[in-house]
């Protein structure tokens, strides 16, 4: 474990908690893409199947459980509890265009052709594009609530910090995982446009609005 990965994990945890807090406090999931949250729940459930068979550390197990529980609760909030506030008219990204290619790629490019490894690879590839429905929804509505932009910033920052963690581990531990690195770079690149808007608008106290 290094400081970059720790801050990255905490940023990820913060993002997940910000989203849950926003939905719970405002009792509304307006502006939130249920499809992205469903994909994130899929990412965690396919990545942490070794939760009970491969013990790494108390921290690792604790975080995996938190991620799985929070992502499922978020999906429950959006599609069940606060269903009336879910903006399905703007959440129209075709997720099958993500899941099918990612599933195929996971079969073709992986480290080991075993079920657990292929599911892990699927999860890594899926995570890199899981935010697309959310970014697409914001581009359609033309704006995002400030709390939602803080959520997205923390979520984007987490994988950007993981890239720094991979550079660190390469130079100091000789460890690198090309699949995770490439997917992590793709994931972070997808946030660049949002990062620019967040830094130039939200941090200036303005509302995040995309040029319609």
């Amino acid at each position: 474990m290094n400081v970059f990965r720790l801050i990255g994990d905490l940023s990820h945890l913060l993002a997940i908690l910000i989203l849950l807090w926003k939905i719970w406090k405002t009792r509304s999931c307006s502006g939130i893409s249920g499809k992205s949250q469903f994909l994130f729940a899929l990412v965690f459930t396919t990545r942490y199947l070794d939760l009970f068979t491969n013990f790494i550390s108390p921290y690792n197990t604790f975080m995996k459980i938190v991620y799985i529980v929070c992502s499922c609760v978020t999906v429950y909030f959006i599609y069940v509890k606060f269903k009336a506030t879910y903006d399905s008219n703007h959440d129209t990204f075709r997720v099958e265009f993500l899941v099918v290619p990612v599933g195929g790629l996971a079969f073709l490019v992986n480290h080991d052709f075993t079920p657990l490894e292929i599911l892990w690879t699927f999860s890594i590839y899926l995570e890199s594009v899981a935010i697309l429905p959310q970014l697409f929804m914001i581009s359609k509505t033309g704006e995002a609530e400030t709390i939602t932009s803080h959520y997205l910033f923390a979520l984007g920052a987490y994988r950007a910090l993981y890239i720094v963690n991979w550079v660190y581990r390469y130079y100091f531990e000789g460890f690198f995982d090309l699949i995770a690195i490439v997917a992590g770079c793709v994931q972070t690149i997808l946030y660049c446009d949002f990062f620019y808007l967040y830094i130039t608008k939200v941090l200036q106290g303005k509302k995040l609005s995309l040029p319609a």
Binding site: N54, I56, M63, Y67, L116, Y162, N165
Partner: peptide, 10 residues
């Protein structure tokens, strides 16, 4: 091959 132990990242 990547052993399962390598999967120490979240």
């Amino acid at each position: 091959e990547k052993s399962q132990m390598d999967k120490d990242e979240l």
